[in-house]
Amino acid sequence: MRLLLVRHGQTPSNVRRVLDTAAPGPALTPLGESQAAALPAVLASHPIGAVYASTLLRTQLTAAPLAAALGLAVRVRDGIRELAAGELEMRGDGEAISTYLETVFAWSAGETGRSMPGGERGDEALARFDAVVAEAAAEGVTAALFSHGAAIRMWLAARAVNVTVDEVAWRELENAGVVTVTGSPGQGWCLEGWTESPVGPSGEAAESGPAGETPEDAPETPAG
């Protein structure tokens, strides 16, 4: 089967470049709303039969236009929410962002007993995401899962058999970007496509926040 893993549209915290992972989280910026509105056309070639979103407001707002266009209800699931930043919450400095991303991809590489500072462990994060994937796969239809930059990339790097952790860690996932995988929970998953987002009427790149960025994008922390 095919899963479309869709990152939410831009939020004010993305513009500020802070780790904002707690519920319910912010709504979308005007650009984020335009990204969400563009997704039904972007995904029109896929025979989507189910739409899921995390418990955070931004994914539900991003999923709403697609669900409305398809006449489907949005299934809200906590398992695909963003990876909790713990003690790093609402920080945007280089040290915090580097620690967050390093921990996320350590989980993907198998260090699942490691904890985010003051937050969840990798085995917990993977298990909750896996549970929603399994539910979607059991439907036997193409499903769109609206989730978050770090959560999508962490799960993809851990579960896709045709990419390495480094290949995922060093590739950005913009707001409203779509990662397509095919396979099943039993046989494994393969990365099929990684598309960039519709970034609004101007077509210009915009701030998409640290959770979808590469480690090199983390700001430098001044010495002293």
Rank of each mutant, 00 (worst) to 15 (best):
A85S: 03
E111R: 02
R114S: 02
E102C: 09
W107P: 02
M90E: 14
G92H: 12
G86H: 06
R91I: 07
E111S: 13
A96K: 06
M90D: 14
P117Q: 04
A85I: 00
E111K: 04
R91P: 10
S108D: 06
D93H: 07
S108I: 03
M90T: 13
A106K: 04
G94F: 11
W107Y: 06
F105I: 03
S115A: 15
I97H: 06
S115D: 12
V104L: 07
I80P: 08
R91M: 13
R91V: 05
G92M: 10
T112S: 08
S98P: 04
M90H: 13
E82D: 13
M90I: 08
E87F: 09
E89F: 07
W107T: 00
M116D: 08
F105Y: 13
A84L: 14
T99S: 04
D93E: 08
G92E: 11
E82R: 03
R114Y: 03
G119W: 09
R114M: 03
R91E: 14
G94P: 12
W107F: 13
G86I: 00
Y100S: 00
L88K: 06
L83E: 10
E87W: 09
A106I: 00
G110Q: 01
P117S: 07
E89C: 05
L83K: 09
G92Y: 12
M90L: 15
S108E: 08
L88V: 01
A84C: 12
F105D: 01
G119N: 12
E89R: 06
S98T: 14
A96C: 01
